[in-house]
């Protein structure tokens, strides 16, 4: 029962991968099980919780809702790709300083979403931060320290924007 495999190319965290995928395989499945990128988590598999969030061509997507074949040629950033190995991006440091994670299972999705928000809108208001985060679920933190971390990290993104 040979199923048709589709060859695709993904650029993940700056590295190019050529991989063959089945038509029904999600990006989440391929990242975790074929490329062994384990920071990307899954739990609801229906787009409700956002723990599987990755940046696809710069935008946050829920990788459980994206077919891998659709992502052919895309550039993908996961938590591992936010800063060179062994270093941390300002948003990651802010999460540590503000106690913005507990069990850590949702943390990759929150950090990537926050990174996207601050890259595009470093002066986001608290209301805008809450709205963007509301696509994601955290059962541990009560969100307050996550919001505080994002507000604190905003200054680094503002500086970056001024430099450009």
């Amino acid at each position: 029962m040979a199923e048709k495999l589709i060859p695709i190319t993904l650029k993940v965290n700056g590295k190019e991968y050529k991989v063959e995928v089945k038509p029904n395989e999600t990006l989440l499945f391929v990242l975790r099980n074929k490329l062994n990128i384990k920071s990307v988590k899954g739990t609801c598999y229906r787009g409700e919780c956002g723990v599987c969030t990755v940046l696809l061509n710069g935008k946050p997507v829920k990788s459980c809702l994206v077919l891998a074949a659709e992502a052919d040629g895309a550039e993908i950033i996961t938590l591992e790709g936010l800063a060179p190995f062994g270093t941390l991006a300002p948003i990651q440091k802010a999460f540590i300083e503000h106690g913005a994670f507990q069990c850590g299972f949702c943390t990759p999705g929150f950090i990537l979403t926050a990174h996207w928000l601050l890259t595009n809108k470093p002066d986001a208001t608290e209301e805008e931060i809450k709205e963007v985060l509301s696509g994601l679920i955290c059962r541990c933190t009560g969100y307050k320290q996550i919001i505080e971390a994002i507000k604190a990290a905003a200054k680094y993104y503002k500086q970056d924007k001024q430099k450009q």
Partner: peptide, 19 residues
């Protein structure tokens, strides 16, 4: 208010049974 020591959770290489 010392920051948590389990910072691999924000780096992306924390390991769970899921992994």
């Amino acid at each position: 208010p010392i920051p948590r020591i389990d910072i691999d959770k924000v780096a992306g290489d924390a390991e769970y049974p899921y992994d």
